[in-house]
Design a protein around this nucleic acid. Sequence first.
DNA 1: AGCCTCCTGTTGCCTAGACAACAGAGAGGC
DNA 2: GCCTCTCTGTTGTCTAGGCAACAGGAGGCT
Lengths: 214, 214
Amino acid sequence: MSTAEGQPLGESAGGHVDPRVRRTRRLLQQALLELLQEKSFADISIQDIAERATVNRTTFYAHFGDKYALADAVIHERFLEAVTSKLPATPGWQLESLRLLISAVFEFLGGLHEYCSPAGGQFDPLMERAVQQELARILLQWLRQAPASSSAHRWSSRPVPLETLAEVMSWAIFGCAAQWSKREEGKLTAGEMSELVLRILVEGTRRLVPGLEE
Amino acid sequence: MSTAEGQPLGESAGGHVDPRVRRTRRLLQQALLELLQEKSFADISIQDIAERATVNRTTFYAHFGDKYALADAVIHERFLEAVTSKLPATPGWQLESLRLLISAVFEFLGGLHEYCSPAGGQFDPLMERAVQQELARILLQWLRQAPASSSAHRWSSRPVPLETLAEVMSWAIFGCAAQWSKREEGKLTAGEMSELVLRILVEGTRRLVPGLEE
DNA sequence: AGCCTCCTGTTGCCTAGACAACAGAGAGGC
DNA sequence: GCCTCTCTGTTGTCTAGGCAACAGGAGGCT
């Protein structure tokens, strides 16, 4: 079973993972999500998680360094899953893809806050990091496949790296959605907010990476 | 891992079972229940079950001889669970316990029929056997603890074994509930049916095993 | 008939996971 | 102070479960 980090455990040949590993990961994630409905993240011990997952405490450490690493994985995977289920089969640098992506972020964060109990204040920053990272990864992927990506550098003497653009956009979307999701009163709907953010981003990127025109 | 039968697997010292075994059994049962909502019992292969449960096909055979054995275990356990959740903490040979037991049977069978898809016709007899067996076991346990059980033999020259009484009662309750659950039209409610069956049983056992008077 | 495909049981070898036992770090309690 | 909990990481040993490969059965197709 070895230590914890090093290599992912059970992943000898590319892509294929031992079903036991898949199962254990799934059980641990599910256990954490269940416990989050009952107590705050701070009050959840690794023993709690292992017990709920029908997994030995030692096994937990074989997969995750600590509960933060588990939470990180949970958010990454659930968010990715939530997003891809809403996106078209072949998303990319198009108005419709971006619209769906943004509204998926709003819905995910909105749902998350009513799902977990008091949220904890310890769980939030962790979750935020994971969502923003995943979001940036998706956007960068789209940007790299955008046909006009090479022309992005022409308008100005100093070219804008796509990595940076993805970062900026991801923070814009995510930050806005996170703040909105924590608001209690006078809240616009997720759809309304998404549309506003979308328009801003379309306007902001039209000279950098065209292709979003309606 | 050894063959299949012999001893329960993983149960070295009394009562304690390896968490992996508990988990695998649970996953296999859950998988069968899920699949039963999608196809009929006859259309479900062991491969289906193993795959859905994230368990190797070989592992299935380490726990259950075939899918019938699994279904048997599912019904036994789910029924027992459903019943004990409805009964008082210390049930026994009392009117209220019997009332709750009977209505639990009606509700369980009623729920089962709307849960599984076409039911299969192959699954039904199997399930029926398991429910009736569990029911008889519970009743016998109550009868044995009934204070007046020794007087049961006095009224007649030929004494009635409690085992037989439990059998008769279990079939009366179960058979009635099973037939009712398959009826489509002009169905009384589960509560009404339970009450009718209860009265009959109270009347029928008052001279054999008293103690049910209201 | 033959061939193909899918499912069933069963085998031996290898690994993920269970468990006990450890040392260490807090957090109270008195 | 010291003592008792509870939780954390880590180690070595043993076992449940994964996987490949087998032989055999039950359709279905031409």
